[in-house]
Design a protein around this nucleic acid. Structure first.
Length: 340
DNA sequence: TAATCGTGGGC
DNA sequence: TGCCCAAGATT
């Protein structure tokens, strides 16, 4: 059974593999570990369509891990703006510098796992794809494919242990990277979450979920919690064709990113409403933004005759605002201010 | 174990 | 249009 499944899958992959920028070039057996690592981090909880332009921009600007390691962190954060989950960018810089110090990329799953931002999935994926090593690569696609293939009906997250064991059982000893990517391609294009296209699936005859009933019902997921709606304020302080930007501290929400000064809103509660400087504030309106675990209604106010804020920050030229790397929430607020 | 941490594509 | 979801890691 196990060997048959991987054979069917790899035959399908040979005919239908997607052509993606981080995959091996024709004639090269294995792709560049730097490009594999970078793509895998960008792809964490992020769609291929969203990643493509960022991958192109990063690899053009920083073609090697040494180049990325030499970059100022704030440049990398700004380049990551809009992609989300900014701890990935903070860890990316740390990992690049660690690799540069080592002199070369770690080439085992165990050593890769030591790099910041590489968890069980990413370490296994890089080991398999970039170094051809057998590894158990389990992402959300593989979870779905395997839960259906073996008709695993226990709900997530409890079923993950069984999924890992089942994946290990069907993973071949050769073509480790192709197998992992084939499972993910199958999950993203055929064995999709809502509407699996079983008639096109190379594993239809092997699939217990298909034989037993409706594979779309697997894997069973826990009900999701509702998101609270928080209130906050942000301030647009403009002088001589420049706007006052701050850099958010720490490792929490949008940590390390440039931003408008705000009133301390968070997932836990509303902001204080207290402005950063004295003065007359003009109401510009409100932007709504939904994060992973809460929604925010951000009221934007503008000051036309400001003093220099006391808090650390910088006057950023309006004609270069795109380069500031504002995360999407503050890009929305900036758009509102510039349209007012 | 469960919460935290973003965003945009696709339906 | 609102909601589901995605090549998860970290604490």
């Amino acid at each position: 059974m196990a060997a048959i499944v991987s054979e069917h899958l790899l035959d399908w992959y040979d005919a239908h593999a997607r052509d993606l920028p981080w995959r091996a070039r024709p004639g090269e057996p294995l792709p560049d570990p730097y490009r594999v690592w970078l793509s895998e981090v960008m792809l964490q909880q992020t769609t291929v369509a969203a990643v493509k332009p960022y991958f192109e921009a990063f690899t053009t600007r920083w073609p090697t891990v040494e180049a990325l390691a030499a970059a100022p962190e704030e440049d990398v954060m700004a380049a990551w703006a809009g992609l989300g989950y900014y701890s990935r960018a903070r860890n990316l810089v740390k990992a690049a510098r660690a690799v540069a110090d080592l002199g070369s990329f770690p080439d085992t799953e165990e050593d890769l796992r030591e790099l910041p931002g590489l968890g069980a999935y990413t370490a296994a994926a890089v080991a398999a794809i970039a170094f051809g090593q057998r590894a158990v690569v389990v992402d959300a696609n593989v979870e779905r494919v395997v839960a259906r293939l073996f008709a695993l009906k226990e709900p997530l997250p409890g079923v993950r242990k069984a999924i890992r064991a089942a994946t290990d059982a069907i993973a071949p000893d050769s073509r480790a990277g192709d197998f992992a990517q084939a499972m993910m391609d199958l999950g993203s294009s055929i064995c999709t979450a809502r509407d699996p296209k079983c008639l096109l699936c190379p594993l239809e005859r092997d699939c217990r979920g298909r034989a037993e009933g409706d594979p779309a019902l697997l894997p069973v997921k826990a009900p999701k919690k509702e998101k609270p709606v928080r209130q906050g304020r942000a301030w647009w302080i403009e002088r001589d064709g420049a706007v006052w930007l701050v850099r958010r501290e720490g490792t929490g929400m949008l940590g390390g990113m440039r931003a408008l000064p705000d009133d301390g809103w968070s997932a836990k509660g509303d902001g204080t409403g207290e402005p950063p400087i004295e003065g007359h504030w003009e109401a510009l309106g409100m932007v709504r933004h939904t994060f992973s675990h809460f929604a925010l209604e951000l009221t934007v106010q503008r000051s036309a005759a400001p003093e220099q804020p006391e808090r650390a920050g910088e006057w950023w030229p309006l004609d270069r605002l795109e380069e500031a790397g504002l995360p999407t929430l503050f890009a929305k607020a900036a758009r509102l201010a510039l349209a007012s």
